[in-house]
Computed example of a mutant assay.
Amino acid sequence: MATQPDPAGKKRRAFEAELSQRLRDRARLLLSSETEVLRTLVDARTQILATLTGQPSDWKLWQLSRLLGQIDDVLTGAAGQAGTVFGLRLQDAWNLGEDFVDKPLAILGHRVELQLSQLDATVLKQMRAFGTLRLRDVGTEALRKIGTELGLVTIGGKSPFDAIKTVQKILGNDAPLRAAAIVRTEVSRAFAVASNDRLAQAQDLVPGLGKQWRRSGKLHSRWNHDLIDGQVVGAKEPFKVPNPGGGVDLMQCPHDPRAPIEQVIHCGCISLPWMKDWDVATPGAKPFTKLELQQDGKKATLDQAAKRAGQRQE
């Protein structure tokens, strides 16, 4: 018996392939954004350590105010460069989030990008200002900690060698970790908000258009985000996300600006465009991998409870 053509299935597979490609673009953008911002901090660290190692070995000869002024100049310059890079990558994420809806829908014959107006970028401007301020705070906090260390040197409370080791840690671990978290969170937020706003715009043009929450797949992810993996709502409706402290938060998307901080920082979840009349490969929660179940007891417990409740496949 001859195989019957399946044009709907072919379109669905092309749609999902396009989504996958856009998610790979998102992953590359997140990585490059962090790398570029961290590079400015590495350069600053190199300059500051060179300045400190060039100081007299006799701590009594150190001039604290002049030294802190030099370090402040370096950190301020680095923060400015990081802010510029951050702003550009935020715009890239916003554009990519809009395309995350437009391009896959075009494969289905819904040319929404030709019918819809551009997204209101007001929230993008606010996110850029907020993120830039937070990056500047990283430099301010680093200067405060460094000032404390160098102040101890100038009063004989700490050796120059020990102080420089602490400064290396501040600039090599503390500041970069904070900066990376800020960049990852805010760039992810720009992508999520843009794609969610575009979905809301497109709903009236695409019957049955909705969105589906997908967990990050991180080994040690939020249990409450794993719990709602696969949840489907209308394009303009909020997801119902359990809060670790009790109750439920209504979130339009992962990284929703209105959500509590505990729901968004370090979150890697995404919201996918979803079509009501399709039979997708994984309609509900994605099965946990063997490694996830072995390495995270919370996932194993959640998996068993969900299976007993009929919410996950055996």
Rank of each mutant, 00 (worst) to 15 (best):
A2K: 11
P7I: 09
K11A: 15
R13G: 13
E16R: 13
E16A: 15
A17K: 13
S20E: 15
Q21R: 15
Q21F: 14
R24K: 15
L29Y: 13
L30T: 11
L31E: 15
S32T: 08
S32L: 10
E34K: 11
T40L: 04
V42W: 10
A44V: 05
R45K: 14
R45Y: 03
I48F: 04
I48P: 04
T51K: 13
L52R: 06
T53S: 04
P56R: 07
P56N: 08
S57Q: 09
S57A: 08
D58A: 03
W59N: 03
K60Q: 09
Q63Y: 01
S65C: 06
R66A: 12
L67S: 08
G69K: 06
Q70H: 07
A78G: 08
A82M: 01
G83I: 00
Q91A: 04
D92L: 06
W94H: 08
L96S: 05
L96N: 02
G97S: 06
G97E: 00
D102N: 15
L108T: 00
G109W: 05
V112C: 00
Q115F: 05
L116T: 00
T122A: 05
A129Y: 04
A129M: 03
F130D: 08
F130R: 08
G131P: 08
G131S: 08
R134M: 02
L135Y: 00
L135R: 07
R136A: 12
G139A: 03
L143K: 07
R144M: 01
I146R: 10
I146F: 05
G151S: 02
G151E: 10
T154K: 06
G157P: 02
G157D: 13
K158W: 04
P160W: 13
A163R: 11
K165I: 11
K165E: 13
T166W: 08
V167K: 09
V167W: 05
K169F: 14
K169D: 14
P176S: 02
A180Y: 09
A180T: 11
E186C: 04
E186I: 02
E186D: 11
V187Y: 10
R189E: 06
F191V: 04
S195C: 14
A200K: 07
A202N: 03
Q203S: 12
G210L: 05
W213G: 12
K218D: 10
L219R: 06
H220P: 12
S221G: 04
S221R: 01
N224L: 03
H225K: 02
L227A: 05
L227S: 06
G230L: 01
Q231F: 06
V232R: 06
V233N: 01
V233A: 02
G234N: 03
G234M: 00
P238F: 09
F239I: 03
F239T: 01
P242I: 13
P244K: 00
M251L: 04
P254Q: 14
P254R: 12
P257E: 03
I261E: 14
C267A: 14
G268D: 07
G268A: 14
C269A: 15
I270C: 14
L272E: 15
M275S: 09
W278V: 10
W278M: 12
V280D: 14
V280L: 14
A281S: 11
A281C: 04
P283G: 13
G284I: 12
P287G: 11
T289G: 09
K290A: 11
L291Q: 12
Q295T: 09
K299Q: 10
D303P: 01
A305P: 10
K307F: 10
K307M: 12
R308T: 14
R312K: 13
R312Y: 00
